[in-house]
Simulated assay, not measured.
Amino acid sequence: MPADNSCISISGPWQHRFVQANGAQFHIAHAGTYSDTRPLVLLVHGFPQYWWAWREQIAPLAAAGFEVAAIDKRGFGGSDKTPNSADALLLTDDLIALVHSLGYDRAFLVGLGRGGALAWSAVSKAPDLFAGLVTVSSPHPRTLHRLGMHLTLRTWRHAIDSFLTPLAEKKLQDSRHIAQLLQEWSAPGNNGAAGQAELYTQALRLPGVARAALAQLRWTLLSQHSARGRQYLRESANPVKVPILAVRGALDPLLPPRAWNKDVEFARGSYELLTIAQAGHFVPEEQPAAFTDALRIFLQTHC
């Protein structure tokens, strides 16, 4: 039976486009019009999501005067699934190349979870290209690669489970497992993300996606043991001088407040850590109004 890819092209106040960048084709949900006075806003999802994670933000940001592109990362959704989709150096370069492919020389980069780590790295690697950085549930990547108590036991349990292939790959294609994962990572009783489990599972069932998702997690966990991984961490450690808004959910079960303590080692411009109440790991879906307002204010202040 052919995979059901209708989850990629869901209609709404956006258009679906395909963009060539860095040797691959990327699917984006796009809204707004080009501006030569305002930077692009590039939205980068985390695990186990795809562009749909930003459905509540796309239209409001476009209405505020920004051109907005919510991407499917390489290996996810409607974007190419190349053999090397796990390499974070390549994934970082994808973000840089996408900004250029969309015709901009300035952009705001907004990333959640693993997408936030890549956003940190892209701004570190190409500082002149970015006007600002917004991370959600994503401390600096060098923090996440350090062993220590900045992560919770639930985070480490999930990391260990990610090695259990092919069982883990099958679990990612099971809507009951995805619903449980989304619920566990959310604030108690909040279904903003968990209510989308069927769509996220449908996207994970697309050919190659679950395998790419697990490969990216394993690459992250083992990065310090490979030359490419060590290079990625070095290139992610440059001082970031653009304005940064770091957002966390007050009830995030994966990342306690102390996980952000080391951000100031890398943030050399304005830096704000914003905690949003009644939200877990998936803040834009769990508290969309509060998050969108904070994001819009940040973008308008620094554009």
Rank of each mutant, 00 (worst) to 15 (best):
I96R: 02
N191F: 11
E286V: 02
I276T: 00
A31S: 11
L147C: 09
P207M: 02
G32T: 01
S186Y: 08
G189R: 15
Q300E: 01
K262V: 04
L91S: 08
E272Q: 15
T37Q: 12
A107N: 00
R157S: 10
I244V: 12
Q231P: 09
W219Q: 02
V19A: 05
Q300I: 00
A31D: 02
Q25V: 11
G65Q: 05
A197R: 07
P60A: 10
Q49L: 12
L98G: 01
A187L: 08
I10Q: 06
A168E: 14
Y104C: 09
S223I: 09
Q202C: 11
N5E: 03
P127C: 01
D4K: 09
R38K: 14
R114A: 12
S223C: 05
T82H: 13
P127R: 02
A193G: 07
Y200H: 04
A21Y: 14
H150P: 02
V283A: 08
Q173W: 08
S35K: 06
Q57H: 14
V283E: 00
T292D: 06
S6D: 03
V134N: 00
L204G: 06
A69V: 08
V123L: 13
A64I: 00
T292V: 07
T165W: 13
F108V: 04
L109M: 13
T33R: 15
R176H: 11
H145R: 13
V283T: 05
R17L: 09
Q196H: 14
H27P: 00
C7I: 10
I8E: 00
R55S: 12
L217F: 04
L40D: 02
A227D: 13
Q224W: 15
A193I: 14
Q183C: 09
A237H: 00
R142P: 10
A88S: 05
I160A: 10
A107E: 04
L151P: 02
A179S: 13
A187C: 03
I276Q: 00
P39F: 05
S9I: 10
R74F: 12
E285S: 13
A69L: 06
N190M: 07
C7H: 03
G208A: 00
D174C: 08
V283Q: 03
S85L: 08
L172S: 04
W185E: 01
I244W: 00
P13W: 13
L112Y: 03
L112N: 06
E265A: 10
G23W: 10
S6L: 07
V110H: 15
G192K: 03
L245N: 02
A210E: 04
L251N: 14
G148Y: 09
S124I: 01
G75R: 09
P288C: 12
S226R: 15
D128Q: 11
A24P: 06
E169K: 15
G132M: 10
M149A: 12
P284N: 04
V110K: 15
S9T: 14
G103D: 03
T292M: 08
Y50D: 12
R142I: 11
S138R: 12
E56D: 13
A290V: 10
S226P: 06
P166M: 02
E235R: 02
D252K: 05
E184W: 06
Q196S: 14
R74S: 06
